[in-house]
Design a protein around this nucleic acid. Structure first.
Length: 755
DNA sequence: ACGGCTATGTTTTTT
DNA sequence: ACATAGCCGT
């Protein structure tokens, strides 16, 4: 095979060593994906292995897609039959096929995090517990942690460690909530993200015939980013490959950045114990980055205590030193980054897509965005709120989900009174409680709920049931698009959005149309055999925006969190917000292990770069709506000074900037605020939906002032008579043509400013 | 039941 | 800054 000649000896060994357990420790930029790709290609083309019997697991949709594309380029359309995807998507598929063994319907709903948390909140309330103590986030991560360690609710309640921890934390009912949560999911025919893995383990543990079937099918198992797997995932793959023993894991302990959700570096060490004749291959040559970047990154990761021994090196040129930019504010940081991109683009003949701006938290994207927009540099933000997580999209999806699975409690709660049909919260609770008391699912309970409801609500429920029944009939006869469009229309959702003429309302309407378009595309896709709505909905919960990426394969600067940059590379990388408490994050300073994870995250960020890294920090930054002083990150100092170009004035221990007189009273701070406001004033053109913020000062006449003509969705046209301040809120008194004078709190008012 | 308004919490990352 | 849960009055 000609591709073998492009590989160095350890890479080649990784490709050719196909039989038996193999562990590839792949340093950053060492050609890991290339080895995995060729390895699969090698199996198919030279060993004549049926792609259908190769299972390749990744961590993110992005990685899965990337891998599939690359393999397709080498072996052609055969690659389509590969079992390749994220853990969650692959095992969701298997669980649907085997659902009956576990007592689930094959069209079970997948609850996303939001669904899970809102179910937990409902349970906590029903149990009469204090939701200040049993916070949904805390309960959720507790349950999630247990599931990822394969601790069922039964085991949880019998486990003295868990129980005493909960008692210590004054949360003795945690086990009971876990139990109720699991049972409610089961009744709803729903699995959360963790269940997809947990239940696969149960399936393989309790149904040896099923396990055996998949063991026979998957002759070769490969796992990418193994350092990020949790115990639940590890055990699945261990079981699957127990017979053939053809398991190949690829990973890098230095890039483990998901411990917070149960990933366990121990898995790599356990692996050596579980497979005594394990072949270990180390890829240590970095092909991606310059000497300086590799050295800088190495010097950082050296500060961590636990790691496997390896020596990452490169033959590449020295390249530029790591740069450091200091700014006075988050907005200035944006401007400096934007102008730096602008210069490098000209000087080095680079394209926009050669640049990436990486940050710790999604909220940091804002300042960057603004600066790039002003400099007319095209950009694209990855991650953040997914299209599928938007409220209007989730609403329609809830209708679709409920039509498919009539017992899905969360979808039911979402749509039962949407649009308003006179079934309020108390009625909904009555329905749910009476259903479960009579040991019925939501659907049956709903139809027998008349007794417990007042007449008006009972009538409304009747109509709702009839409506869903007509959807169900349509579902059996039509394809996904036809059904979805029918539901969108008949449910009244589309009309409600259409009637909302605010800018936001228009946006929401368009988003729903876009979802319908996506379903249309799905139906028109010739490769798609099953065109039913069930097939479309099956793993919508597992989708991210990654699939829409090639729609505009334009040339743009890439903005994303460091986490979502994993596995990617760019010529120039900006790591912004290099400030103590932000990166490393405040919340990760409690233990040494946490700090080391942050350091690995920094390592990941540095090693994304091919030619140049620029670090940047700001002296002040808006956080929680307040201007805060910042200190440069300790990570900056951890880079060996030989590889970084530091401003001579840089000294971390000395507070920097003019804001050290505590509080925001200094002239400097005032200037900053003033500067910020003038900046903002320049941005929005007059005709824009006005959703002002609480800190919107009365003197700031950015977009609303007396004398202006406005439109209100309900009151129609009017003229602003008076502006006023009430506490932190701004009020406007408006004379409406048809409704007379009204005083509105601008924090909530939906006004359109007319030209 | 519902809409207007206030108070409160959140911001670490992803499936 | 922004969303949302929940209170209160209708």
């Amino acid at each position: 095979m000609d591709y073998l000649s492009h590989l160095n000896p350890p890479q080649r060994e990784g490709v050719e060593n196909l039989e038996g357990p193999t562990m590839i420790i792949a340093g950053a930029g060492s050609g890991k994906t290339r080895v995995l790709t060729y390895r699969i290609a090698h199996l198919i083309t030279t060993k004549n292995i049926d792609p259908f019997s190769i299972l390749s697991l990744t961590f993110t949709n992005k990685a899965a897609k990337e891998m599939r594309d690359r393999i397709e380029r080498v072996v052609g359309t055969d690659a389509r039959n590969l079992w390749m995807g994220t853990f969650h998507s692959v095992f969701a598929r298997i669980l649907r096929a085997e659902a009956d063994k576990l007592g689930y319907p094959s069209n079970f709903t997948i609850y996303d995090t939001e669904d899970s948390k809102s179910l937990i909140r409902a349970i906590v309330r029903e149990m009469g517990l204090d939701d200040k103590i049993y916070k949904q986030n805390v309960v959720y991560s507790r349950i999630s942690g247990a599931k990822n360690n394969l601790v069922s609710w039964q085991n949880y309640m019998n486990n003295s460690v868990y129980v005493s921890e909960d008692e210590q934390a004054q949360k003795p009912k945690m086990g009971a909530i876990y139990k109720e949560y699991v049972q409610r999911c089961f009744r709803s025919g729903a699995m959360d993200f963790d269940d997809l893995l947990f239940n696969t383990n149960v399936l393989f543990r309790d149904h040896l015939d099923v396990l055996n079937k998949y063991q026979q099918r998957f002759k070769y198992v490969m796992i990418d980013e193994f350092q990020d797997t949790n115990i639940s995932q590890y055990l699945i793959t261990k079981r699957l490959s127990a017979v053939n023993q053809n398991i190949c894991i690829v990973g890098d302990d230095a890039q483990s950045i998901y411990a917070f959700r149960g990933a366990n570096i121990q898995n790599i060490l356990n692996f050596e114990k579980d497979y005594p004749d394990l072949r270990v291959i180390k890829l240590e040559q970095n092909y991606r980055s310059t000497q300086n970047i590799v050295n800088a990154a190495n010097s950082v990761i050296l500060k961590n205590s636990a790691q496997l021994k390896k020596n990452i090196w490169t033959q590449n040129d020295d390249g530029e030193l790591v740069h450091l930019i200091k700014s006075t504010s988050d907005n200035e940081e944006g401007r400096l980054v934007a102008s730096s991109i602008f210069e490098d683009k000209n000087n080095k003949k680079l394209e926009n897509k050669d640049f990436a701006i990486l940050y710790r938290t999604n909220s940091q994207s804002r300042a960057m965005e603004e600066a790039l927009r002003k400099s007319s540099i095209p950009y694209r933000i990855y991650g953040g709120l997914s299209f599928y997580q938007r409220k209007e999209i989730k609403d329609l999806l809830a209708y679709l989900r409920f039509t498919i699975n009539h017992n899905d409690e969360q979808s039911f709660r979402r749509i039962i009174n949407l649009p308003k049909r006179g079934i309020g919260a108390s009625s909904v609770d009555k329905i749910v409680v009476s259903a479960f008391e009579n040991d019925l699912g939501i659907w049956e309970g709903l139809q027998k709920s008349q007794r417990v409801l007042p007449n008006r609500a009972a009538n409304a429920v009747d109509n709702f049931v009839t409506l869903i029944k007509t959807f169900k009939i349509r579902l059996g006869k039509s394809d996904a698009y036809d059904t979805a469009a029918f539901i969108a229309k008949q449910s009244g959702l589309l009309k409600e959005l259409y009637d909302d003429k605010t800018i936001e309302g228009l946006n929401r309407y368009e988003n729903v149309q876009e979802l319908l378009n996506a379903i249309k595309e799905f139906v028109d896709d010739e490769q798609q055999e099953d065109k039913s709505l069930e097939a479309f909905i099956a793993d919508v919960a597992l989708l991210t925006d990654a699939d829409n990426e090639d729609k505009d394969n334009n040339d743009h600067v890439n903005l994303m969190t460091i986490h979502s940059a994993k596995g990617l590379e760019f010529k120039h990388v900006f790591i912004v917000g290099m400030e103590e408490d932000l990166f490393p994050s405040q919340m990760m300073l409690n233990s040494r292990a946490d700090l080391e994870e942050e350091r690995r995250l920094f390592y990941v960020a540095l090693t994304r770069a091919m030619e140049k890294v620029t670090l940047s920090y700001a002296l002040t930054r808006y956080r929680f709506g307040r201007l805060k002083n910042c200190e440069p990150s300790r990570f900056i100092e951890e880079i060996d000074p030989a590889y970084i170009k530091v401003d001579r004035k840089f000294n971390r221990s000395e507070p920097m900037g003019a804001l050290n007189n505590g509080g925001g009273s200094s002239v400097y701070a005032k200037n900053l605020v003033a500067q910020r406001k003038t900046e903002r004033k320049a941005v929005p053109p007059g005709k824009k939906l006005h959703t002002p913020s609480p800190d919107f000062a009365p003197s700031d006449t950015r977009s609303l002032d007396t004398g202006m003509k406005v439109e209100h969705p309900k009151f129609g046209f009017g003229e602003v008579k008076k502006m006023d301040v009430q506490g932190a809120n701004r009020k406007a008194t408006i004379e409406f043509e048809n409704f007379g004078e009204k005083t509105l709190l601008l924090t909530f008012a939906k006004l359109r400013i007319m030209e």
